[in-house]
């Protein structure tokens, strides 16, 4: 039988109630689709006295246009997101990323908010209690020391959600609801480069919605490196958003997942604005990616492959989007 911790299940019907319950139960966890939290709970990775079930909070499930933004509720399922025609037409990277997550049955209940807040992963962490104990645990849970980088003082578990890089490349912002109200911030600022504390989310806060600008002329796409065609987390995932003005780049944004403890926006691409996409531009892009990612030995598939895949997928997407925009 499964080794689920003993908890009380709370079922608020509004987001405000959810946040109030979270404040009242400091060690509680939110659950929506459950496809990340519950397998981790079964393995003994999560102990909590209270779980706050969000299935009844209908107000968080929406996709609606608001001016020149698309607003998407955190409880929107990945299947609904992947199937939405507005999203497919205007924000292909988001549509493709949502469709790339896990398998079709996961996506039928997995949510946008859940994928953005996915627990970080490492082959020394995502194991049974028996396995971890035999390995003397690790820094992320119950032990000390990082098993992939023994001299490191920080945890290197990798962020492995597909949707975050797409939204970061698309310049999305997120609404965070706390007991004091809503704050809105760029999605990239929600994350920290720390495998143990990767979310800059207060203990009483709930991610409620994502706002994505609908910017004319942007091409975007997402590509995922994985061994199998379904179920697997990204060994590397790359999202690109690009706008072309004649023979020059007007905007180029690249974000990656699976190759750091947070989804990372690749920096240093602003110098390409106004330039053509030539070999020199590609060299700059490759160097920028190499500098900003840090694939550690957190997966069974090797680091060299993941680094290489990130660069190859980025180049392919940039080239393809450049051609499509021309």
């Amino acid at each position: 039988m499964s080794s689920m911790p003993n908890f009380v299940l709370l079922r608020p019907e509004t987001a405000a109630d959810a946040v109030r319950l979270r404040a009242a139960h400091p060690d509680s966890r939110f659950v929506a689709g459950g496809t990340d939290l519950l397998p981790n709970m079964r393995r003994g990775l999560v102990r909590t006295p209270a779980v706050i079930e969000l299935a009844a909070v209908r107000e968080l499930d929406f996709i609606r246009r608001s001016g020149d933004e698309l607003h998407i509720g955190a409880a929107c399922t990945l299947a609904a997101l992947a199937a939405d025609p507005q999203v497919a037409a205007a924000l292909p990277a988001l549509s493709e990323a949502a469709r790339a997550v896990a398998g079709p049955t996961h996506r039928a209940s997995a949510t946008l908010g859940g994928n953005l807040c996915l627990d970080t992963r490492c082959r020394y962490y995502n194991q049974s209690a028996f396995w971890r104990e035999a390995n003397q645990f690790c820094m992320k849970l119950d032990g000390d020391g990082c098993r992939v980088a023994p001299r490191s003082t920080r945890c290197h578990a990798a962020f492995s959600g597909d949707v975050a890089p797409a939204l970061i490349a698309l310049d999305a912002r997120v609404d965070i609801l706390g007991t004091g109200g809503v704050r809105t911030l760029p999605l990239a600022e929600l994350y920290r480069d720390d495998g143990m504390a990767w979310l800059a989310l207060g203990s009483e806060e709930l991610l409620t919605a994502v706002r994505v600008p609908l910017t004319a002329g942007w091409q975007s796409a997402y590509a995922k490196a994985r061994v199998r065609g379904a179920i697997d987390f990204p060994l590397s995932g790359v999202a690109v958003a690009l706008r072309r003005d004649g023979e020059h780049l007007a905007i180029l944004r690249i974000a990656c997942t699976g190759v750091a403890s947070r989804p990372c926006a690749i920096g240093g691409l602003d110098i390409l604005v106004g330039r053509p996409l030539d070999a020199a531009a590609h060299d700059i892009i490759a160097l920028a990616i190499k500098r900003d990612i840090l694939a550690m030995d957190t997966t069974v598939a090797g680091m060299a492959y993941r680094r290489r895949a990130t660069a190859v997928l980025a180049k392919r997407l940039v080239d393809r989007l450049w051609q499509e925009a021309g």
């Binding site: 194991q127 049974s128 199998r228 379904a230 069974v300």
Partner: peptide, 12 residues
């Protein structure tokens, strides 16, 4: 030691 890392091919 699990069916995610031991990669049995999917239908895809």
């Amino acid at each position: 030691a699990n069916l995610l890392d031991y990669r049995v091919p999917t239908m895809a």
